[in-house]
Design a protein around this nucleic acid. Structure first.
Lengths: 220, 220
DNA sequence: CATTTTATTTTGACTAATCAAACTAGATGG
DNA sequence: CCATCTAGTTTGATTAGTCAAAATAAAATG
């Protein structure tokens, strides 16, 4: 069985590689894992000799099929736990990411399957992040961020691309959660601002980096 | 924060010391922790220099107040998790001990408090083992085992002193669970047998070591 | 009481994961 | 095309937790 450290590296490589193309540079991995670069290199070498990643010195790292499989299991556990914490134990969605970081390494398949069943085989977690099925498949939905979707058309929020509690509390306070309706009113390139209106016509202005974190359904 | 290894040692010392008097010998600790004796000695020395245990070479180990406090928190987490797994996720009581061994080190106070609230501040876990309150207090109930309680008087099972899945499955199959009624019909010293009758007058014979694991309420 | 047995402690070694700091390969740019 | 900068790699150490096996203390036994 992989250690929880190994699980964390594989999950991290998986999630970071989503953003970028091809190989994940070691510096990015080290930063994401909060370790010094040398530590990441050392770890990646052992992952590589276990055939969990492909490593090319001075280029970067990518997951093998075996590594992807483990990463997806960890992501699945993480997201199902988040949902359990919100829906069953009533924690706030801003706190569950941190809690799930520890629990994801401690739940057995048996328990995760019960959670999955009890929650009705959910497809997404409280932030709208998709939950891989036991065999690693996703139900993928087309999305666009508030920074690029058409204006004046009401959309439904489907996903928030940030786990930071402060951001999530802000989003919650303003009704920016999966399932909520939102319309982009205007965008201004030079001020970098996106004006939106939420339920009850409430208006709100976001910077584009925040707007980029909020995904809505692609076809209205 | 103590590592999960440290938590395990403290919990183990706490639980093993329940049975015995005074100091727990290193051999017993090593056996209970599944490590070689030298490992237990080394660990206990570091616990001792952290003032979590009292250690006397070639005599044994006992918990300090600080050590007891940590041990009780771990026991509390363990037992609340067991109850959650049984009552909310529907796992069988024979499997939850093992699951909780890992989870007890991964749940935060925040989560454990939600679980406690959601379960209605329970006093005992699925095996009847008492759950310490956040400040380490127990609701203690007088009990006797089936090996020593008066005969012919119906009693209520309150606790099972064994976490072995096989034993628990056997007990479950025969209705020997907390809350169930049971009467000791007869005992025989030489054959080491305890004959009991369960609900619906079903008869059953236990060896005295099994009888000793089943506790009933003291005053009928 | 001398001897053997058993429990415990010591010593030396190992693995996983980490950091600090020295080093190096490539890219950047004058 | 050489010098510099930067990202990445190496090396040497450290810590926690462990085992194997040698050493020793205490208890049990003849």
């Amino acid at each position: 069985m992989p250690s929880s450290t190994v699980e964390d590296y594989l999950k991290c490589i998986y999630l970071e590689a989503q953003r970028r193309d091809g190989m994940l540079p070691m510096g990015a991995l080290a930063r994401a894992m909060n370790v010094v670069p040398g530590t990441a290199t050392a770890m990646v070498k052992t992952l590589s000799s276990d055939r969990l990643v492909n490593y090319r010195a001075r280029v970067g790292v990518s997951l093998t099929d075996a590594g992807t499989e483990i990463a997806l299991q960890v992501v699945r556990r993480h997201r199902l736990i988040e949902l359990l914490l919100v829906q069953v134990l009533g924690l706030d969605w801003s706190e569950v990411h941190g809690e799930a970081e520890a629990l994801e390494h401690a739940v057995s398949d048996r328990v995760i399957d019960r959670i999955d069943a009890m929650l009705g085989h959910p497809r997404v977690d409280p932030h709208g992040d998709p939950i891989p099925s036991p065999d690693g498949a996703f139900a993928l939905v087309g999305t666009v961020s508030l920074a690029e979707c058409p204006r004046k058309v009401p959309r439904t929020i489907v996903r928030i691309l940030d786990q930071d509690p402060d951001f999530l509390l802000f989003a919650e306070k303003n009704g920016l959660m999966p399932g909520q309706k939102v319309t982009v009113v205007s965008r201004d390139k030079s001020s970098d601002a996106v004006e939106i209106s939420v339920r009850k016509g409430k208006k709100l202005t976001l910077g584009s980096s925040a707007a980029r974190k909020i995904l809505v359904d692609e076809a209205s």
